[in-house]
């Protein structure tokens, strides 16, 4: 459970304040690309926070969360595509470019797939769960590669960002940034409540001793599946934001590397902390930005960093900064 000690609260507010003042500062320094970079980070942080709910609190090691992200992105992208092309999508409906419609749909689609994957994979556990979630994510990857009508391997270009209640306020990069930040803060606050609630306690209880939970009268499957679907839906929201950020959707969003990197963000930042994954995402993107300046082969460095982090840096950045070992 996220600790409510002062240092942790201070750090959380600190990172959120930093993210809040980033756009004006970056623009003042004449570095607009910083806003773009940070926006991308926000979106992945949102997905990583969602992943922490299942991975950190429930120890459901999902190696396929990028699929939910990608499904969310494709939902937005495909609806946009039909809207712009004025071609019928389903039952004569010509899609939509409206965020208030497309984003909830993106969450719904991701949640639906999470329900399917979870219902099959949560009947087993441990290493099996890792392999099955990975395989099902790969299936969606190939599904979108095969959809030639939506660009196949090359992906689908969006001609504009979504409209919000008919207005094109998302056309502004800075507005989009703050919308993403708002979503991240809202999701973070919501999940902090969830893990502290009765429901959250059940999830943590299942992680610690599933047999005990069953003996007390709980059916772990139901609660784990609910958490998994919730996490999938939030990753789908991240996908909807990612589509707007990139103005492009691509099968690469759902690749197994993306799923792996989401897990890396959670681990680097601090497992079972919810705030930690934001630090993790920040660090990973910053590391990439710095290393790429020196070498295109930045993952040659990232790989060993990751191994060392697993071996010697158990609490993640959040644990290190708050002086706590969590998870």
């Amino acid at each position: 459970m996220p600790e409510t000690n002062k240092r942790a609260t201070f750090l959380t507010l600190g990172v959120l304040a930093f993210l809040a003042i980033l756009p004006p500062v970056a623009l003042a320094l004449d570095r607009p690309y910083m806003v773009t970079l940070a926006n991308r980070m926000l979106v992945y942080a949102l997905a990583a926070v969602a992943l922490d709910l299942v991975m950190g609190y429930g120890r459901m090691v999902s190696f396929g969360h990028a699929a939910f992200l990608g499904l969310g992105a494709y939902t937005v992208g495909i609806l946009h595509h039909h809207d712009v092309m004025m071609t019928p999508f389903l039952f004569g409906w010509a899609g939509s470019n409206e965020a208030l419609l497309a984003w909830p749909l993106a969450m719904l689609v991701a949640a639906g797939y999470a329900l399917l994957v979870g219902a099959i994979s949560l009947r087993t556990g441990g290493v099996y769960f890792i392999m099955i979630t990975l395989a099902f994510a790969q299936m969606v990857f190939f599904f979108f590669v095969s959809l030639i009508a939506y660009g196949g391997r090359d992906g689908l270009v969006m001609f504009s960002r979504n409209s919000v209640a008919g207005t094109d306020i998302l056309g502004s990069r800075v507005v989009l940034y703050y919308v993403c930040l708002g979503c991240l803060v809202a999701v973070l606050a919501f999940l902090v409540m969830v893990v502290r609630s009765r429901f959250g306690r059940i999830i943590e209880g299942c992680r610690q001793n599933e047999q005990r939970m069953r003996a007390l009268g709980y059916k772990p499957f139901v609660y784990k599946l609910t958490a998994f679907v919730l996490s999938g839906a939030l990753a789908g929201l991240a996908g909807a934001l990612l589509a707007n950020h990139s103005e492009f959707v691509s099968p690469d969003f759902l690749s197994w590397e993306s799923s792996g990197l989401l897990m890396v963000m959670v681990l680097l930042g601090g497992l079972s902390t919810l705030v930690g994954p934001i630090y993790g995402a920040l660090t990973l993107f910053a590391l990439e930005e710095v290393l790429v300046a020196y070498t295109p082969h930045w993952q040659l460095v990232l790989g060993p960093v990751l191994i060392l982090a697993v071996l010697f840096f158990k609490g993640g950045l959040y644990g290190w900064m708050t002086g706590k070992r969590t998870g």
Partner: peptide, 8 residues
């Protein structure tokens, strides 16, 4: 069990 808001 599905109460998700109030702290337990």
């Amino acid at each position: 069990h599905f109460r998700m808001v109030r702290p337990a």
